[in-house]
Design a protein around this nucleic acid. Sequence first.
DNA 1: CTGTGCCTC
DNA 2: GAGGCACAG
Length: 281
Amino acid sequence: MTRFSVPALLLLGFLAVSCGDENEATPTPALPEHLTLGNPSGAAADPAQPTNYLLLKSQYALSYHRDKGIPNWVSWHLSPEWLGTAARQDDFRADATLPAGWYQVSTSSYTGSGFDRGHNCPSADRTRTVADNSATFLMTNMIPQAPNNNQRTWATLESYCRTLVDEGNELYILMGNYGKGGSGSNGYQTTIDNGRVTVPQRIWKVIVVLPQGSDDVLRISSSTRVIAVDTPNDNAQLPSWGSYRTSVDAIEQATGYDILSQVAPAVQATLEARVDNGPTQ
DNA sequence: CTGTGCCTC
DNA sequence: GAGGCACAG
């Protein structure tokens, strides 16, 4: 499975803006906060890897696919510290931090397409400061998402995540997509913006639920709740998110990624084979 | 940037 | 009704 080198890890550690300082004596370099579970595709901040380009922001981390115009996956930590009172900024805009010469998807790239500018890291997960909320509106955090999938199925799952935080948990969340072609409000399309933005076929999420304060990934055990969901990018009236639960193994098989790679192998095997059957609200 | 609409809870 | 997701002009 994909792994990244120790020098790369060190580099990532130094680049991480919001990464809390650990003990300097820690033998293994700490991953950035939002990559605590690992780097599923071995993304690197190297313009020579345009289809798996690592973008580290203080609010979230992602692997960007230049030729699809969307992220492969986005990863972030959701804890009470990230939740505050900042208003939704709604300032959708191009991400100017992409390497020079790359096409920058803009808010108008989606206009009239029949697909929502669907957040990966949700606006409502980043309300600590105005800057944090605004960062979620960068177009590198968006995928063309069928409105009913985004505003119903997905919104409900996102809301449930924040409920889990309100109940005393903190979460590590990974959201991604695969395949090509979905049905928005204008019907089936494989791309929008003159082919510069790919419409994904499936949208998935993996959520690791930990009691607050146990943010050491080593404390993930075989009894840790892991919620894995895989939904079609379809505008039909979908059932609630609970009926789309699947295993991490199934998502790995569909994507080729190595998810939860920072978790101890034996624990990883147990957690990844399980399908969550816990509460859904 | 403002106004509007739909959905879930 | 409040909060969350958007859209159009």
